[in-house]
């Protein structure tokens, strides 16, 4: 049962490793967007500290969006996707494997880099753990929801902009709970409620999104 899951995941990770530069672009985008904010809103420390969770989360959301089109585009172009769909393995399973590999390649680096960037905004060291945890729980949800959008817009003209229009409204709850977790930790109420909701959202997305994504891929490849 899990054989094809790990096979597809290993293949995607290997492909990503061979084209490391592509992956680093997403990470560089994340870092640059975050670093642009002080230029825009001014370098006043209190203000930066107040907007830091929101800035990091919005930047993570935008970099996820930027990398999403790569999730299926290459396999679509060289016909791999068609062969995978023809295979007898359950579609939702290998779709989940592809999304997991995609998150490890594009989402996980953001999670690891975020605490360092938070220091640039003078965020207290006590909340760095909550920030990392919220991103670790939230960014896979973004990848899962975004995968549905990527499958729906596969091979369409203006696909990138369309993808943004489709998935950004769906990202809003993740953004609210993710940035909210850090804010409530700073405010002293504790981040447990927000993190639990994010965790619940992640489980719900893992359960539902691969099936929606599989249906969308079948429609796109008909």
């Amino acid at each position: 049962m899990l054989g094809p899951f790990f096979a597809v995941m290993r293949r995607d990770l290997l492909l990503a490793w061979r084209g490391r530069a592509d992956v680093l672009v997403t990470l560089a985008f994340f870092v640059i967007v975050v670093c642009l904010f002080p230029f825009g809103v001014g370098a006043e420390t209190n203000q930066l500290r107040a907007i830091a969770p929101g800035v990091l989360w919005v930047a993570a959301l935008l970099s996820t969006l930027l990398s999403l089109h790569r999730l299926f585009a290459q396999d679509h172009a060289d016909g791999t996707l068609e062969q995978l769909l023809l295979s007898p393995e359950p579609t939702a399973l290998w779709v989940l494997a592809k999304i997991a590999a995609h998150w490890i390649v594009t989402g996980l680096p953001l999670v690891l880099v975020a605490p360092g960037l938070a220091l640039l905004f003078d965020v207290g060291q006590g909340v760095l753990g909550v920030l990392t945890l919220s991103l670790a729980l939230g960014s896979p949800i973004l990848a899962l929801l975004g995968a549905v959008g990527a499958a729906l817009t596969l091979g369409l003209r203006g696909g990138g902009v369309l993808l943004a229009l489709l998935v950004l409204p769906l990202f809003v709850p993740v953004l609210i709970f993710g940035a909210g977790a850090v804010d409530s930790e700073l405010g002293g109420t504790g981040a447990a409620a927000h993190l639990l909701l994010l965790g619940g959202g992640l489980l719900g997305a893992i359960a539902l999104a691969p099936f929606a994504c599989a249906a969308a891929l079948r429609i796109a490849m008909e």
Partner: peptide
């Protein structure tokens, strides 16, 4: 494709509503 995004949206509408 439209039907799938409409359904995904419908699942998300209550989540969006309560989160905001």
């Amino acid at each position: 494709a439209g039907a799938i995004i409409a359904l995904v949206g419908a699942v998300n509408v209550p989540i969006i509503y309560f989160s905001v």
